[in-house]
Design a protein around this nucleic acid. Structure first.
Length: 491
RNA sequence: GGCGACAUAGCCAAGUGGUAAGGCAGAGGUCUGCAAAACCUCCACCCCCGGUUCGAAUCCGGGUGUCGCCUCCA
């Protein structure tokens, strides 16, 4: 069995074969750092983080490179409006991106690249393209001549003659100097007061698309295994990357192209320009904010390729769902000692890296079959829920009756399987948070209230008994009335 | 105008030829002073119309609807 993935280039699912056995080179288009990242970005980077985690779990050595676009008109505009510099703005939002995405448990890239640190590679590439006749200078700018590149349009399935230039309504003044409306800037001559770099074509800065081509070549080589990014980048960004890189090197830029679907709000794409976006930090820092893992779960419940609608209701449902997985993930910490597990005090307890799970077991095989099929995370999650529900049931039985009806070693295997598979999806529970008593009632206070309640109930004063029960519930304490007047409780 | 994607229960969503995973919400039951918690059980024939097939949500054709891209974009 091998992994099958959907390749935008061929519009088909294809068996995944790497250039070098066991090694995967991935390049991910990162953010332009001029503002805080929103849920669309979260969706994108969670998706590719999950792909990366899964490939690692399947035994591949993955080299994952992602860029920061830190030279751009929008950054420049932001800098002007706040009277700072492009560098200041870029550094601020680069840092913010890293903080936000880390909360969603996205692992850092093996390498991050920056446009500002790739000027040599960029200029070298533009020079080659010019030499080979694919680029032409005009008024201090340098443009790529799309009609010179035979395969132009192969990724996005377009034909230059069928496209309506300017259909998106964002035509700029550049057009007058271009030979063809679809030609795009490789180098932009500096205007008065703008930051610039010296070049053979005069002072200026690189166009947007060229940085990715240059970075990939510098860090990963002429051809990589997988190029990933948002589906809104297919055209023109990725199409232009292909045109640049392949014209220069004569080799395919990437074997596979994968694109994530957009996050929608009310059926429309979430985007800066529509103003309908929610930033990651706004969502996670709001009152009653969802657990970051619930947000990740929300994003993994559907296919990475399809659009996903963001609503408060959907996040709330995901939060509840996460509670179920959480119960399962924390099972070992809560019940391991009662089940006689001898390693619960070990520092490595609960660490997936230290666990040995049975790869041939049904849950793992089912999980793998789902994920092998174009990273079907929804199918993978079903396995996690099965395990988590079994464990929760066992835990409840222990709480309510004192013992589970499943052998301890079976529960241990189930728990470890759950923890390991959840980690492959980037879903992790942090023990300790749930049993926090910060600001709450002490055990003695709870017991005192329970005594009051017991007396009230004995006197048939159920209103008083219920009042105390509600009071405790508000403190996060759940009561379990058992036959015989015994009341147990847990936080 | 061109290119593309999607349409499955109240909501989200997987499945892409053999008679519908999972999550959320909901219903019934056991238990209970009533609840809560817990446990058990139940809950869709897959947008419409044709066609292919022994058999289609799943393939083909035609509709309808929604969305994305067509040089800001994850």
């Amino acid at each position: 069995m091998s992994i099958v993935l959907y390749n935008t280039l061929t519009r088909k699912k294809e068996p995944f074969e790497t250039l070098e056995p066991g090694r995967v080179k991935i390049y991910c288009c990162g953010v332009t750092v001029y503002d805080y990242s929103h849920l669309g970005h979260a969706r994108c980077y969670v998706a590719w983080d999950t792909v990366r985690r899964y490939l690692l779990w399947r035994g591949y050595a993955v080299h994952y490179v992602q860029n920061f676009t830190d030279i751009d008109d929008k950054i420049l505009n932001r800098a002007k409006s706040e009277e700072s510099s492009m560098q200041t703005v870029a550094e601020r939002y680069t840092q913010a991106y890293l903080e936000d995405i880390a909360r969603l448990n996205v692992v850092e890239a093996d390498e991050y690249t920056y446009a500002t640190q790739t000027l040599d590679g960029i200029q070298r590439l533009i020079g080659e393209l010019e030499q080979k006749g694919y680029a032409y200078p005009a008024n201090g700018d340098v443009y790529y001549s799309v009609r010179k590149f035979e395969g132009y349009g192969k990724l996005s399935g377009r034909n230059l003659d069928d496209m309506q230039a300017g259909a998106s309504g964002r035509v700029t003044g550049e057009d007058a100097t271009k030979q063809d409306p679809f030609d795009f800037a490789l180098w932009k001559g500096a205007k008065e007061g703008e930051p610039f770099w010296e070049s053979p074509w005069g002072p200026g800065r690189p166009g947007w698309h060229i940085e990715c081509s240059a970075m990939i070549r510098d860090r990963l080589g002429d051809t990589i295994d997988i190029h990933v990014g948002g589906s809104d980048l297919v055209f023109p960004h990725h199409e232009n990357e292909i045109a640049q890189s392949e014209a220069a090197t004569g080799h395919p830029l990437s074997r596979y192209w994968m694109h994530n679907g957009m996050v929608n709000v009310g059926g429309e794409k979430m985007s800066k320009s529509l103003g309908n976006f929610t930033t990651i930090r706004d969502l996670l820092d709001a009152p009653n904010a969802p657990d970051p893992m619930a947000v990740r779960l929300f994003l993994l419940q559907g296919s990475y390729r399809k659009p996903v609608d963001f609503t408060d209701e959907a996040i709330a449902a995901a939060q509840t769902s996460w509670g179920t997985l959480l119960d399962g993930l924390l099972f070992g910490y809560q019940y391991g000692a009662k089940l006689g597990w001898v390693d619960v005090e070990d520092s490595a307890f609960g660490d997936p890296a230290a666990m040995r799970i049975d790869r041939e077991s049904d849950p793992v095989q089912t999980f793998q079959a789902a994920m092998d099929d174009d990273f079907n995370t929804a199918g993978g999650l079903a396995v996690l829920f099965d395990l988590a529900k079994d464990l929760r049931r066992a835990g409840n039985l222990i709480t309510h009756t004192g013992e589970a009806d499943t052998p301890s070693d079976v529960l241990r295997q189930q728990w470890q399987t759950l923890v390991c598979l959840a980690q492959v999806l980037g879903l992790e529970a942090r023990p300790g948070v749930e049993v926090s008593t910060e600001g709450g009632l002490s055990d003695a206070e709870v017991e005192a209230l329970l005594t009051q309640r017991r007396e009230a109930r004995a006197a048939k004063d159920f209103a008083e008994g219920d009042r105390i029960r509600d009071l405790l519930q508000a403190e996060g304490i759940t009561l379990i009335d058992k036959p015989g007047g015994v009341t147990e409780w847990h936080r």
